[in-house]
Deep mutational scan, measured.
Amino acid sequence: WVPTKREEKYGVAFYNYDARGADELSLQIGDTVHILETYEGWYRGYTLRKKSKKGIFPASYIHLKE
């Protein structure tokens, strides 16, 4: 896992994603996520609506905010 280059990196989910394991994070369309790390097509972070739950999710489900 590699920390993100920018201190504040955010994105928005444009697909729903159902977590398949305890380390994964479920997403709903429109969720804003804070991205902490990246690795081979995956991000690690949390949604702003539930900051206490961190997990991994596919990068392809996220539109990055500039």
Rank of each mutant, 00 (worst) to 15 (best):
V2Q: 12
K9T: 11
A22L: 10
Y43N: 01
E24L: 03
K54M: 11
K9R: 14
V33Q: 00
I62Q: 00
P58E: 00
A22H: 11
E66W: 10
E37T: 04
Y15W: 14
G41Y: 05
L25W: 05
G55N: 03
G30N: 01
T38Y: 14
Y10T: 06
P58H: 05
T4I: 11
G45Y: 08
Y43A: 05
I62D: 03
R20W: 05
Y39N: 13
A59K: 13
A59G: 05
G41V: 05
I35S: 00
P58K: 03
E66N: 12
V33A: 00
L25K: 00
V33W: 03
E24H: 06
E37P: 01
I35W: 00
P58W: 05
Y43Q: 00
T32S: 08
R6V: 12
R20M: 11
P3L: 05
Y61T: 10
A13L: 03
R20A: 08
G41T: 05
K5E: 11
L64E: 02
A59C: 07
Y10C: 13
R20L: 09
R49Q: 14
A59Q: 10
E7L: 09
E8L: 08
T4Y: 08
W1Y: 07
G21A: 12
R44T: 03
F57Y: 00
A22V: 11
H34V: 15
E8M: 11
R6G: 13
A13G: 01
N16V: 07
N16F: 06
K50F: 10
D23S: 08
I29R: 10
S52G: 10
V2N: 10
Y17T: 00
G45K: 00
I62S: 01
Y10S: 04
T47C: 12
K54F: 12
Y46W: 05
T4G: 08
K53E: 11
K53V: 12
S60L: 08
V2G: 08
K50S: 14
F14I: 15
I56D: 01
V12L: 05
V12A: 02
F57S: 00
E7N: 14
T4E: 08
H34F: 15
Y43S: 02
Y15S: 14
W1D: 07
Y15Q: 15
G30Y: 03
L48H: 09
F57A: 01
A59W: 05
T32E: 14
T32M: 14
A19R: 00
T38M: 12
L36H: 05
G30E: 01
V12Q: 05
T32W: 15
R6S: 12
K54L: 14
Y17S: 00
G30Q: 00
Y39Q: 10
K54T: 14
Y17W: 08
G55E: 00
E40N: 14
D31G: 05
I35D: 00
Y46C: 09
E7H: 14
E7Q: 12
V33H: 00
I62M: 01
S60R: 13
S52M: 10
V2A: 11
L64G: 02
D18W: 09
K65F: 15
G21P: 03
E37H: 06
R44F: 15
K53S: 07
D31T: 04
E24D: 04
K53N: 09
L64S: 02
F14C: 15
E40F: 07
K51N: 10
A22F: 10
L48I: 11
I56R: 08
W42E: 00
A19W: 01
R44K: 10
Q28G: 04
Y39K: 15
G45E: 06
D18G: 04
G30S: 02
Y17F: 08
K50H: 14
Y61R: 04
G45H: 02
E8A: 12
L48F: 12
K50L: 13
S26E: 04
W1R: 07
G21N: 15
Y10G: 02
V2M: 09
I56K: 11
I29A: 10
Y39T: 09
T38F: 13
H34Q: 05
W42K: 01
E37F: 08
I56M: 10
H34E: 04
K51P: 15
E24V: 03
S26H: 04
E8G: 11
R44D: 00
K9S: 13
E66K: 13
T4K: 06
G55P: 01
W1C: 11
I62H: 02
H34N: 02
F57R: 01
A59V: 08
K54A: 07
I35C: 05
Y15N: 14
I29Y: 05
K65L: 15
S52P: 06
Y61S: 08
Y46M: 03
G55Q: 04
I62E: 01
S26D: 11
K51L: 08
K65P: 07
G45C: 07
L25V: 07
Y17I: 01
V33K: 01
